[in-house]
Amino acid sequence: MSPLIGAAWLDVRERADQLVLNYVSRAADAAHGVLRSEQRLDFARRLRARIEAEVGGSENPRTVAKVLDRFGDPAALVAREARRLTESAPEAAACGSRAGLGPEGTRRFPAIRDDTAPAHPPRRAGQHRVSRPTSLGLPFAGLRRVAMSTANPMATGGRDARTVVKEHPRETAALVILVVAALLVPFGLPPLAIFPVPLVVWAAGTAVVLLSESWEVRDRFLGAGAPLLGYVVGGVLVGGLRVGAEPGFDTFMTAFWAVSGTMFMIGTGLGVVWLAYRLLDLD
């Protein structure tokens, strides 16, 4: 393994561990004033063990984020744990001396949000999810949840824009770089060597997107390639339509250069929206 690949693998592993640590820390913070100190420590220990069991040894941050999303809001888990301890206290006190456990000594962890949901068969490699309407009356439920995410974090299972930025700083930076590339188009900056400045900035953002493990491969190419696709295909189509009754290569190129920058900006906007939507992982 080359040093570069090894460093990248360690970085991915550290990010996955950090996701788990952040989630458990949020749960422990929520348990302050709700659970006693020994109950809080026991709860945090069992929560981390349950998360690691659900993750199944995966070191992919995307997989870990999906598991944590299934657990839901840490505060809700703490409230459920408090109710369980209250309800089980009489029974635990009666049998505690026989079992050698205190009222809070149960080894059972409350069921996570979708434990009662029917299990789905594992996806085969290369098989992508297909988004379907949750009901005939809400064909755009996923987009509605995205729109609500900044106002109501519970609409996305506890994940909102702030959470995504905190958990995915590199991916967020890549999206910002792509937006900057689009915003530089109207300024007409002098090229770097022979390359336009927006193209150089786009290439930097694209490199970060393609190296990210948080998006599927298809999403990386769609999101990062949308600006270039808009520039080339959009410029050709719209420029061709603008040629009108004056055909000719020079006329076409004039029309192409006049619209290609705008089409690049439109493609960038569509690609960034798609990548941000997939980062929220609302399917």
Results as ranks from 00 to 15, higher is better:
Met1Trp: 13
Met1His: 13
Pro3Asn: 11
Ala8Gly: 05
Trp9Ala: 15
Arg13Asp: 10
Ala16Gln: 06
Leu21Val: 04
Ser25Leu: 09
Ser25Asn: 11
Ala31Glu: 03
Arg36Ser: 15
Arg36Asp: 14
Arg36Val: 02
Glu38Lys: 12
Arg46Cys: 05
Arg46His: 13
Leu47Ser: 04
Arg48His: 10
Ala49His: 09
Arg50Gly: 06
Ile51Gln: 06
Ile51Asn: 02
Ala53Gln: 14
Ser58Met: 10
Asn60Met: 10
Pro61Asn: 11
Arg62Pro: 03
Lys66Trp: 10
Val67Phe: 08
Val67Met: 09
Arg70Val: 03
Phe71Thr: 01
Phe71Met: 08
Gly72Lys: 11
Ala76His: 11
Ala79Asn: 13
Ala79Tyr: 01
Ala82Cys: 03
Leu85Gly: 03
Thr86Gly: 13
Glu87Ser: 10
Ser88Ala: 15
Glu91Pro: 04
Arg98Val: 09
Ala99Ser: 14
Ala99Cys: 13
Gly102Thr: 08
Gly102Ser: 15
Gly105Pro: 02
Thr106Gly: 15
Pro110Met: 08
Ala111Ile: 04
Ile112Glu: 07
Asp114Cys: 05
Ala117Val: 02
Ala119Tyr: 01
Pro122Cys: 07
Pro122Ala: 13
His128Met: 12
Val130Tyr: 07
Arg132Ile: 07
Thr134Arg: 14
Ser135Leu: 08
Leu136Gly: 13
Gly137Cys: 09
Leu138Met: 09
Leu138Glu: 14
Gly142Val: 07
Arg144Tyr: 08
Arg144Phe: 11
Arg145Pro: 00
Ala147Val: 03
Met148Leu: 15
Ala151Ile: 10
Pro153Thr: 01
Met154Lys: 10
Asp160Ser: 13
Ala161Asp: 10
Thr163Cys: 06
His168Val: 02
Arg170Trp: 09
Ala173Cys: 12
Ala173Glu: 11
Ala173Lys: 10
Leu178Lys: 00
Leu178Phe: 00
Val179Ser: 04
Val180Phe: 05
Val180Ala: 14
Val180Asn: 02
Val180Cys: 09
Leu184Thr: 02
Val185Lys: 01
Gly188Phe: 09
Pro190Val: 06
Pro198Leu: 04
Thr206Val: 03
Ala207Gly: 11
Leu211Ser: 12
Ser212Leu: 07
Ser212Arg: 02
Trp215Cys: 00
Glu216Met: 09
Val217Glu: 14
Asp219Ser: 14
Asp219Phe: 03
Leu222Trp: 03
Leu222Thr: 04
Ala224Trp: 00
Ala224His: 01
Gly225Cys: 08
Pro227Trp: 01
Pro227Thr: 00
Val233Asn: 06
Val236Gln: 08
Leu237His: 03
Gly239Tyr: 02
Ala245Thr: 14
Ala245Pro: 04
Gly248Ala: 13
Gly248Val: 10
Gly248Asp: 14
Thr251Lys: 14
Thr251Ile: 10
Thr251Gly: 15
Phe252Asn: 06
Phe252Lys: 06
Met253Ile: 15
Ala258Glu: 14
Val259Asp: 08
Ser260Asn: 13
Gly261Ala: 08
Gly267Pro: 03
Leu270Asp: 01
Val273Trp: 00
Trp274Ile: 01
Trp274Cys: 00
Arg278Gly: 02
Arg278Val: 03
